[in-house]
Design a protein around this nucleic acid. Sequence first.
DNA 1: AGCATGAATGCAATCGGTTGCAGCAATCGT
DNA 2: ACGATTGCTGCAACCGATTGCATTCATGCT
Lengths: 343, 343
Amino acid sequence: MSDVAALAGVHKATASRALNPSTSGLVNAATARRVRTAAEQLGFTPNSAARSLRTNRSFTVGVLLPDLTNPLFPPVARGIEEVLNARGYTALLANTDNDEAKERTQFEALRGRQVDGFIIATAQRVHPLLDEAYESGVPIVLVNRCTDKRLFPWVAGDDATGMALAVEHLLGLGHRSIAHVAGPQSMSTGVTRVRAFRHAVETAGIAPERAPVVVSESYTAPAGERATHELLEKHPDTTAICAGNDLIALGALHALKARGLRCPQDISLVGFNDMQFADEFQPPLTTVRVPHLDLGAEAARLLLERLDRYEEKGHPAPMSKTVFLPVRLVVRASTAAPPPHGA
Amino acid sequence: MSDVAALAGVHKATASRALNPSTSGLVNAATARRVRTAAEQLGFTPNSAARSLRTNRSFTVGVLLPDLTNPLFPPVARGIEEVLNARGYTALLANTDNDEAKERTQFEALRGRQVDGFIIATAQRVHPLLDEAYESGVPIVLVNRCTDKRLFPWVAGDDATGMALAVEHLLGLGHRSIAHVAGPQSMSTGVTRVRAFRHAVETAGIAPERAPVVVSESYTAPAGERATHELLEKHPDTTAICAGNDLIALGALHALKARGLRCPQDISLVGFNDMQFADEFQPPLTTVRVPHLDLGAEAARLLLERLDRYEEKGHPAPMSKTVFLPVRLVVRASTAAPPPHGA
DNA sequence: AGCATGAATGCAATCGGTTGCAGCAATCGT
DNA sequence: ACGATTGCTGCAACCGATTGCATTCATGCT
């Protein structure tokens, strides 16, 4: 502000230049030093509203998360924050509770706050809001889920490989009746994992009717529990279950207990994500580990890359790079050999 | 913006008044309607940077959390968001990772972004940053933890009652050698719970040497595990443990397993907070339920109250109201009668 | 009719940095 | 020695919404 300039005996324009790293080369080193110490003395903090107003950049990015209480997302958020903070950006986290209206509200609120871009973890396969957003040209990176139209850069775990690993593990244990309790088919993760599951069992020469798929209406334990009951009604001879994610697996665990089935002695169970506390379940869950922190970090990097380019060229290159991060199977105690036939 | 005003055939000042609910009474109803439809047509979103610049209010509050991956905090954050969003405010969440340097950085960054106030869940008993912040006069509300100097309004669970309930429960089961694995004594929750523990056992007529306290260096499972080992080295005759929080309890569970002790048959265990997944542990944890969502919601309400007053009177009333929300004991499977003497 | 009243709107300053352009001095080149 | 170049700084416009004040016009009152 002008107080600082006055104290340093210069014009406020010079003070501004001295304080801004990218323009400080324009002022005399001695003057710059004087200004900086003056700023220090006065405890000066630049008013970012004024800066944004003039520069049209807020150094803030909006992060849309479907549900903070799902342990999957906090690490993603941290990864995002880490990368962003290192570059002087701030992440604005917002919950949508998987509610499209709430999502729209949050999105508008953030746009109004002049965020420079978005990292979005709430994508549905068909997503009007994102279509509109694409038209408007806001920089956006998708994380975890994506839309059917591949309009945006996208970072996710390698779901196909993950599911293949899970099925191979179960096959290796001797299972031949493997079911999949899938996540909602309105999300890309839901269909990708179903497709990978089908491919894996088919490759192993298992007849489709011995590899049923039921769909859970959401990625939550209660929904997973209901879907598992449904599965076991129709296919009581199932010996192993691949769950769409760890919360569905947790619900499956509840369903098994309710039916008097032991895991893994009667039925083996594999989760997906390796979320926090998956190793504390009873039994500790065998699951596919997705590097959540890296997911967020990589998404943030992609967005920054996009923002840099935006700044330089003034126009966004039409970039919809997809990044799959490697996953691996973590074997714990929820999987074992199938019970002897007819036991 | 002026485009809207032009389309509606009015001056931009009128447009501004028409669009702002609090000043829309100043313009003709018909004109206001015309402006609103014009704004709608053009997809106008007000530039909040410009508004903040002029009004010195950003309708944004900063939320400082020690660790998002601790399941205690996401519900708090949601409670905050819910109340804030309903009033047109946005919450800016920031992680500090329990790191004072990082906390300072985040705090400065948020101040620079002109937040109207803070909700802080990272308070230490001695906290230079907060002392400075108090001097500067920023509206702040503390949640969960507080500083020794009671400078700020503060919302927390009723820890003293909670701990009393836990101890009574154990006494009722017949335990007479109850230990407390406490949280860090640098935080108010750590000392409050120790004090309440000591008071409860003393009231019950238990000799202090039969009610030892060991301190865990942090609210995490690994630290809790180490502290529990230390406890059991020194006091092998312990039959029940009150943990400083659920993560410490989880660590205690690991320690017990490592030592070949069964829970609850050999040793009973009570947690604190009733965090998400505490019911999935092996065994499901008996714990004190703190209403996390309400904690956040109430803190947000207190802050809004403060902000409203700030706006009216121009000067903050020196208010440091304390709100304790009621807690209750949730009995699960980690507590039972002590083993028969000498078994 | 004449003047006061009040509602509705326009005008212009303002918030606090940023930045294109101009001015000025010192140094350089020939 | 003189014009050109370079380095540094000042000037002033500008970003977009808000708001105190002035203006206009219609209505009410006597």
